[in-house]
Design a protein around this nucleic acid. Structure first.
Lengths: 342, 342
DNA sequence: CTGAAAGCGCTAACAT
DNA sequence: ATGTTAGCGCTTTCAG
């Protein structure tokens, strides 16, 4: 079978016109007569013409490509953010190239190169868990490519970012537990070097201070906050002398919280009667467990949309003159049975 | 700031070489002296040179781009499949462009155009729920672009596809319920026009026949198998006269199954004592509910990897001569508490 | 081993 | 309103 890949030149020849005229007709230029335009567009349809964006991009210097770099797209959070990004980007005429770092800095570095080589007009990134510095993003700056971080970032000056107010979220949820009567609230904390986990921990500590509750190191357990980590954390907490046991738990991740819940049940303890629980992220399954789990919603779609919006602003202004900006979205506390006393 | 975007021509000038030599040196051609090669690569590093893939693609006719079109990437299934695709594609030197149809044919059509225009070298598709015919894929064929369907497809002749053996999965799970003592097994079925749901239904019916159980239309409820649909379906089942009520339920979706479970509990019924439950997809939350839910694992990652592998085969052979193939992966039944009698 | 020259498909000055 | 020409950055004959 002869593969039918019509070019502008082909159509120009067929219609006895010049390439420029055909190009203009296809792009609805005003300076083209209605008759020529319709003739061209008619033929394009007949021949099933598809423009070669590669060629157009090379010529115009505009690829209409937007690079997105996430740790992974499994799980609710990033999948939803990416969905928000995709929606907004498409609306603005951009195609999205998605790369996953698999939580590995080396992967992340390679992905950055891939995106640069693909001539993306902007890069939206959420850092991998193993990223401790961001030197590999310098070349993005050097090339004048708009760079926007979302959710996971390092606290460098002068970066564009869209983040959830993790501090506020943690503060609210901890306050809620205190108001429900908890006096010894444990915390399953995530890796310190990531802003989101550090902020959640700070918010938790701040709420304790506000209510005059003592901070207790034995109640703060750091891990990668997976389901297994949550289970292990709870085991550790239950091993404390009875007087030191927590009466409430705030987990920096819903996954870890489920692990903790399962361990509690295995020990014959009940929620919320024996311990109040609250998590973070509002994963879909927080409504599927028993009891349903209180959590903090991260407004994933909005986060994605705001990230694209910020990118578009930078693109319009130009990286050289754009004043770096950080957008902080307020979180939504969702109270469910796991944290309601009585 | 002057943006530093070095080209091959720039480097050629700097080193007093021709563009061709520089190009060859960068691509490790054998016909280049070791000295020149290292000089070039050295300079490239210093100047932070990044090749323009758009230009290379235009010249070579090879974009190294692979298009992926899924209904959405939220939820475990597609996110995992895409992850599998990404891993395998990257290994083969392809970048992945992901588009979401949002379960809308019109969107799907537009996405196909976008991918063709982007000059992708292949398209991997899982159909939207609202796709009833595949005429819009004809142009993909016409242009000789390898096309592979995965999971959701229509039963047309002569298509390349990688699917899970939904029939077998449904047959196994239904058989399991029967062996656990169920005699009246209900089925929450999905939209008939999609192969996966039709096959699950057929597998269910086949198992009933094998064991001489009568098919009962009142026990088969069709819907879009969302959580809400599952709840509604269970409400409908519980409204049946006691003698006609099911003692087991096989849902074509885990989400619908959770809806059904919640409704059962609201009615004061227990699982597995009052009804056995089993679902499909092995969503992460099937291990988080109480009881944990029996489900059929779809081997998402493998599915993604196989899809890419098939694409690579077609690419190697050429679409013109490639004999269409369908790859069917056997499913894994995961038995959990929700379907264990006693 | 290296260079000269052409061209992938498109668009945008600059003509007319 | 249309045509002419040049060139985006790269690769690849073909010729030395």
């Amino acid at each position: 079978m002869q593969h039918n890949r019509t070019s502008i030149a082909d159509m120009a020849k067929a219609l006895n016109l010049s390439s420029s005229t055909v190009s203009r007709a296809l792009n609805d230029h005003t300076t083209i007569s209605a008759k020529t335009r319709s003739r061209v567009q008619q033929l394009a349809r007949e021949l099933n013409y598809h423009p070669n964006h590669l060629a157009a991009s090379l010529r115009t210097g505009r690829s209409n490509l937007l690079g997105v770099l996430v740790p992974h797209i499994e799980g609710t959070f990033f999948a939803s953010v990416v969905h928000g990004i995709e929606t907004m980007a498409t609306k603005a005429g951009f195609k999205v190239m998605i790369c996953q770092s698999n939580e590995d800095v080396e992967h992340e570095k390679r992905n950055i190169d891939t995106l640069i080589n693909a001539q993306v007009e902007g890069i939206l990134v959420s850092l991998s868990r193993t990223t401790h510095d961001t030197k590999h993003f310098d070349k993005v700056h050097q090339r004048g490519i708009p760079l926007v971080f979302f959710d996971r970032m390092l606290d460098t000056r002068d970066v564009n970012a869209v983040v959830l107010d993790d501090y506020q979220g943690a503060y609210q949820v901890t306050t809620h537990l205190i108001e429900q009567g908890c006096r010894r609230i444990a915390h399953l904390a995530g890796p310190e070097h990531l802003n989101i986990y550090r902020n959640r921990r700070q918010g938790y500590l701040a709420a304790l201070r506000t209510y005059g509750l003592a901070e207790d190191e034995s109640l703060i357990i750091s891990s990668d906050v997976t389901l297994a980590d949550g289970a292990a954390g709870m085991t550790q907490l239950l091993a404390l002398p009875p007087a030191q046991r927590p009466d409430g738990l705030f987990s920096a991740s819903d996954f870890a919280l489920v692990g903790a819940l399962q361990t509690l049940k295995e020990h014959g303890l009940r929620v919320p009667q024996d311990m109040l629980l609250a998590g973070f992220s509002n994963e879909i399954f927080t409504s599927f467990t028993e009891p349903r789990l209180t959590s903090v919603d991260q407004r994933c779609e909005e986060l994605g949309q705001e990230t694209v919006r910020l990118f578009l602003e930078i693109l319009a202004v130009g990286t050289a003159t754009f004043q770096s900006r950080r957008i902080v979205l307020p979180p939504h506390l969702l109270i469910r049975e796991s944290s309601k006393r009585g």
